[in-house]
Design a protein around this nucleic acid. Structure first.
Length: 491
RNA sequence: CGGGAUGUAGCGCAGUUGGCUAGCGCACCACGUUCGGGACGUGGGGGUCGGAAGUUCGAGUCUUCUCAUCCCGACCA
């Protein structure tokens, strides 16, 4: 199925696209910019969801659900928020169709025009803060710590499967607090949740930091983000957490009476990750043989492929495999025993390799004779033959090893592709050769940031948290700088 | 929304200066031999050539219009 699969060095974006489609993760749909997420891809998303959902709940949050549609007037309430999203909103103007006069199909019924248009949510701050107004009267009602799993729509010009689609799935947390300090702490907590998820589950090392004012979320006082480096040297924003200050409370008139009987505005945060994480996962670990999945997020962690010539042989093999499968499952491992006789072993090897299954066990007549199995790992493509005894503990250990190896490989890659740069020529040279993260001095002005973006397409990805202060000269303007920030070309 | 390209079977493509029955590879179906890294042979099914109009005895091929997709820019999680 994956013959004629391009390599990363030949054509990285073609490699990515083909990988997504041929590994059965997702495919383009009849609707421009929207994708169909296929069962195998959705199974990975479900694992991501389950892990994150638990982390949200462990940090005190509850799930709720708000409407898909937002009255247009809500958007004009917070000035910078409108400005940020106005250009990419889908708008519902009518609520009825009717038969076309010529009898061919249906047309929009002009008599069914909505008095106020509805916006398909690009994000839910407005409708949620409009709702919170009624929920919050006293400091006793705070904090509110809510998350929702939802789909949103942003009418993007150019789309790519998972990385940027018109409709995408995500979670958005929206919290309300009595004090500024508590809200900031919340935004930072969630950034740490995201970072820890990325590193421990996705095996992707990330940089934590804040965004420059130009890259900030529309309506935020401060935007925190985790940034990952992809194999082609481009950065990918993998999650954001915003401190929204009192902006939305003021826009939607959400006030509470404090302990001191003072009427005060509520402090807000919002934070989200999307199906874009799937893109990050795919691009971080996969190779020219296809997808590579970290065991913790692989829908199938172990696949068992029998090698047989006839049903009698298969029966002999199954007698060994079924107890092994049970033993592995008892250890919480998801196992697929592919005993189909409609595909050849070689075909199955290639298939599961392409789909990134971390561990493959092969059992054939030879093994039955010798009491062995062959174990192949996807990350290194190594194969080894082991005695059947105590094989389940070996597998458990191997899965841990693979998870750790993928993280370390990705970390090595990032470290080898992060450059301290002090001259403008070097800055441009790095971008045009290897790409990667560039730690450079910046004078702190939006003008310089904009100029750099115009000339190189590189943007400030993050101003790292706990950035060590370091006096220097801006790589572009030569003006004084207080510390290095991270530049890169980004997705 | 600018610049470039492409639409022929599910996918990837060929199809000459217009010519008679539209082809190839992969995939699919049947049978047989195979089965420890994407098997082979034989036979088979599948097309209003993106759409509309026009030129012509005759259009996949020429003309006009139209729609769609992809790439490159501006915008973005």
């Amino acid at each position: 199925m994956a013959k004629d699969f391009p390599t990363r060095s030949e054509n990285y974006s073609q490699w990515y696209n083909d990988l997504v489609i041929k590994a059965d993760l997702a495919e383009p749909s009849p609707v421009r910019g929207c994708m169909v997420i296929k069962p195998y891809g959705y199974a990975i998303w479900e694992k991501i969801q389950a892990a994150l959902d638990k982390m949200f709940k462990d940090t005190g949050h509850s799930n709720a659900y708000f409407p898909l549609f937002i009255p247009k007037s809500f958007f004009s309430r917070e000035a910078s928020h409108v400005e940020g999203f106005a250009k990419e909103c889908a708008v519902v103007t009518h609520y009825r169709l009717k038969a076309a006069p010529d009898g061919k199909g249906v047309i929009v019924d002009e008599d069914a025009r909505l008095e106020e248009e509805l916006i398909v949510r690009p994000t839910s701050e407005t409708i949620i803060w409009d709702t919170y107004r009624n929920w919050i009267k006293s400091y006793r009602d705070l904090p509110i710590l809510i998350n929702q799993w939802a789909n949103v729509v942003r009418w993007e010009m150019r789309t790519r499967l998972f990385l940027r689609t018109t409709e995408f799935l995500w979670q958005e947390g929206h919290t309300a607090h009595a004090t500024k300090e508590e809200a900031i702490r919340e935004a930072e907590t969630m950034l740490n949740v995201y970072a820890s998820f990325a590193e421990n589950w996705m095996a992707i090392p990330v940089l934590k930091g804040t965004k420059s004012p130009a890259e900030r979320f529309a309506g935020a006082i401060d935007t925190y983000a985790i940034e990952a480096l992809m194999q082609d040297g481009k950065a990918l924003q993998a999650g954001t957490s915003h401190f929204l200050g009192e902006n939305f409370a003021k826009a939607f008139d959400v006030k509470f009476l404090s302990k001191e009987n003072q009427l005060e505005y509520v402090w807000a945060t919002s934070w989200g990750v999307s199906t874009r994480l799937m893109g990050a996962l795919i691009m971080s670990h996969s190779d020219d043989n296809g997808l590579v999945l970290p065991p913790k997020l692989a829908p199938i962690q172990v696949v068992i492929v029998p090698v047989f010539k006839n049903p009698e042989q298969l029966n002999l093999i199954s007698e060994k495999v079924l107890p092994l499968k049970k033993a592995l499952e008892a250890k919480g491992i998801s196992v697929k025993y592919d005993d189909r006789d409609t595909q050849k072993p070689g075909w199955k090897f290639a298939e599961y390799e392409f789909k990134g299954v971390p561990v493959r066990i092969t059992i054939g007549p030879r093994d039955i004779e010798q009491g062995t199995v062959e174990i192949a790992r996807r990350d290194t493509l190594e194969k080894e033959t082991f005695q059947m005894t105590d094989i389940e503990n070996k597998i458990v250990h191997l899965l841990y090893q693979i998870q750790a190896n993928l993280y370390n490989k990705a970390l090595d890659f990032r470290e080898n592709n992060t450059f301290r740069v002090d001259s403008w020529d070097e800055f441009k040279r790095v971008l045009d050769t290897t790409g990667g993260f560039i730690a450079a001095h910046w004078d702190g002005t939006p003008e310089t940031e904009e100029k750099i973006k115009e000339e190189t397409k590189a943007t400030i990805r993050v101003i790292p948290l706990n950035n060590p202060p370091e006096k220097g000269k801006c790589v572009y303007s030569g003006n004084p700088s207080e510390g290095r920030v991270i530049f890169a070309r980004a997705y």
